[in-house]
Simulated assay, not measured.
Amino acid sequence: MQTARFNDMISCGCWIKVILDTNPYLRKVYIIGAKEESINAIPSQYRNRVKFYNETELFQEDRRNQFILENTDHPLYISIDKDILNATSAITNWDQGSLSLENLEKLLILILTKTRVIGVDVCGEYSEPANVFSAKRASFINSNTNKRLLTLVLSLKNMIHI
C-alpha cells in the first residue's frame, strides 16, 4: 500500500495500491498476516476495499466461515508472499512471519476448494546477497516451499471452483 518509490515502477511495496487505483474490477483485497502498524498506516480511502486477518484468524471456524461466505460471489486471485511464513518454512531478508507452511497449506486447501479462484502466485524470494551460505540456504528452503505450494495447487486443480 506504499507509493511507488521510482516513478511508475511497480514493486512489492506498492502493487496493491496500484491495482486498487487502476483496476475497476477489483472488489476487495484481503491481507492475511499484516503487522498492526502496517494496518494502521492504510490511507482512509482504501479502508473499505481492504480487509485484514491476522495469521491465526482464518483458523477460527467463525472467521473462516465468514471469509468463505464473503467470497462466493466473485472470483479470487491469491498472491502468497512468503514473508508471512516462519523461518523454517521460508527465509526472507525483511519481515518474517510466524505461519507454518503446513498451516498455510491447510488454509489454501480450504480457500481453493470453497471459493472460485482464478489464479495464484508466490513471491517473496530472498533478494539481498548477504553471504554465499545464507543465500544458498535461503534458496534451498524457499525452492522447497515453492515446490510444495505448486504441487498443492496443481493437485487440487480438479476441485478448484473456477
Score class of each variant (00 low, 15 high):
87 A>I: 11
91 I>P: 08
141 I>V: 15
81 D>W: 06
97 G>S: 06
127 S>R: 07
109 I>P: 05
59 F>V: 01
87 A>F: 08
61 E>K: 14
63 R>A: 14
85 L>S: 02
149 L>W: 03
73 D>I: 04
105 E>F: 00
105 E>H: 04
142 N>A: 03
75 P>T: 08
115 T>K: 04
134 S>V: 13
63 R>M: 14
147 K>A: 15
120 V>A: 01
87 A>H: 12
137 R>I: 05
68 I>G: 03
145 T>Y: 09
97 G>N: 03
79 S>A: 11
145 T>A: 15
133 F>T: 12
112 L>W: 05
73 D>S: 14
69 L>V: 14
85 L>C: 02
63 R>K: 15
149 L>Q: 01
109 I>D: 03
76 L>M: 04
122 V>L: 13
103 N>Y: 12
101 L>V: 09
104 L>E: 04
135 A>I: 09
120 V>I: 08
50 V>L: 10
70 E>W: 09
135 A>V: 12
85 L>G: 00
127 S>Y: 11
104 L>G: 04
125 E>D: 11
115 T>P: 09
71 N>E: 05
53 Y>S: 02
113 T>E: 04
74 H>D: 13
51 K>D: 15
115 T>C: 15
47 R>V: 13
83 D>Y: 00
57 E>G: 06
91 I>S: 03
61 E>D: 10
90 A>I: 02
85 L>R: 00
129 P>Y: 13
100 S>T: 14
110 L>P: 00
49 R>P: 10
90 A>P: 09
84 I>E: 00
145 T>H: 05
136 K>Q: 13
82 K>F: 07
87 A>C: 05
151 T>C: 09
60 Q>L: 15
88 T>Q: 15
83 D>A: 04
74 H>A: 10
59 F>Q: 01
81 D>N: 10
66 Q>D: 07
121 D>M: 09
133 F>E: 14
78 I>Q: 00
119 G>D: 03
60 Q>A: 10
149 L>P: 04
124 G>A: 06
108 L>F: 03
106 K>Y: 05
108 L>K: 00
109 I>H: 03
110 L>V: 13
150 L>D: 07
95 D>T: 11
133 F>K: 12
75 P>M: 02
89 S>M: 02
136 K>I: 13
147 K>M: 14
60 Q>V: 14
49 R>K: 15
107 L>W: 01
129 P>G: 01
58 L>Y: 01
99 L>V: 02
109 I>K: 06
108 L>P: 01
106 K>N: 11
83 D>M: 04
117 V>Y: 03
49 R>A: 13
61 E>R: 08
119 G>Y: 08
55 E>M: 08
101 L>I: 10
101 L>T: 07
80 I>W: 01
47 R>G: 10
86 N>M: 05
67 F>G: 02
60 Q>P: 10
89 S>V: 02
49 R>L: 12
125 E>A: 09
60 Q>F: 11
102 E>H: 07
98 S>F: 09
76 L>F: 01
122 V>D: 02
92 T>H: 01
86 N>K: 07
127 S>M: 12
137 R>D: 10
68 I>N: 09
108 L>R: 01
93 N>G: 04
61 E>A: 13
90 A>D: 06
125 E>I: 08
66 Q>H: 06
139 S>R: 12
143 S>P: 03
